[in-house]
Design a binder for these strands. Sequence first.
RNA 1: GUGGUUUUAGCUCAGUUGGUUAGAGCGCCUGGUUGUGGUCCAGGAGGUCGUGGGUUCGAACCCCAUAUUCCACC
Length: 376
Amino acid sequence: MQFELKLTDPQSAARRGTITTAHGVIETPAFMPVGTAGAVKAVHMRELKNDIKAQIILGNTYHLYLRPGLNILAEAGGLHKFNGWSGPILTDSGGYQVYSLTDRRKLNEEGVMFNSHIDGSKHMFTPEYVMDIQRVIGADIIMAFDECTPWPCEYEYASKSLDLTHRWLKRCMSRFKETDPHYGYEQSLFPIVQGSTFRDLRIKSAEEIAGYNADGNAIGGLSVGEPAEQMYEMTELVCGILPADKPRYLMGVGTPANILENIALGIDMFDCVMPTRNGRNGMLFTSKGTINLRNEKWKDDFSPLDPDGIAYVDHEYSRAYVKHLFKAGEMLGPMIASIHNLAFYQWLVLEARTHIEAGDFTSWKTAMVKQLSVRL
RNA sequence: GUGGUUUUAGCUCAGUUGGUUAGAGCGCCUGGUUGUGGUCCAGGAGGUCGUGGGUUCGAACCCCAUAUUCCACC
């Protein structure tokens, strides 16, 4: 994997770059749709590629390991061949599940024992094993196994957890170096900065992570409930320490406004379930603000779903019709909303790239953030 | 015609020996959702208990009349 930093915005820390992987090129800043179980929920790969124009999608180590399992993935020849997505893929390590499935796991120095949410069976995830699993899945970019801490979080806990995450990172790096890719193309391992919302812990972690000089670096443990201002404070702090010539990935973020603000602070890559999850529940993000399609006021609004939208669904269907689909429980509703939201997120980062190149990113961002908060 | 049965929220129904402000599911309205245990979660509105009398300190519940649903028999 190679990162070419093309230019930095003189008025902010925003950057414009290009990541080249074995499966294709990613223009940054980039947004990566989430496909936890090997599928971006409710969306065909064909739509993802042709209509949404996603450059890279995510998968999840924990979920793919449990289902379909390593044997099937190996037999298929890796996730790309299994799910038909020929572009770049990034897998999360299961570190987020350490946080989200906190009542189904036990954590110790060695790793995390998960109680499967499917059948209750026990599975030990060590940093080494998580690397092995991600070799089998075969994503272009794989993530270190970490502990994503909750918020709020006691300083003592955040500090101890951070040290554990750093020890795990060392083990991840060793195993990664000792092993080879399974399918004939290169994989890159990204370490993850933790430290909750404590400045000294974030500085310590960012310095530790920077020392590995990895192909790219991630910031985790944010957007877990803390106020947005604290998230921005941590991002800014960490971006000042991480290498400038490597892509920076802010994990799990976020709302359209969160993405623009973090681009301004120096983030290159984002992922978030919001466009798909909220889409499945009837919420649309648009350049003029958000739409709750469940609201009664849309029932006889026959205007296009999003007159400013770039996706074909924006002009093919009316708000009244898609509202009806949600009310009727028709699965086409979540499909249309997911396509719209993902296309909107792609449009948003495309515009950001264009404005960084044009040199007017900051003024564009300020105006856009204001519009995004409107409730239509 | 006779005997029985039914009637409670928009819909389908609970409701104890008569005892505070009559409940549920669905539907409706409104929120929420940030490295996906999510077709999910939370909140809200909505009832003259078929109708009219009566008994009782107190009635969805007991009594009378009447309307109504369904069933059986003439």
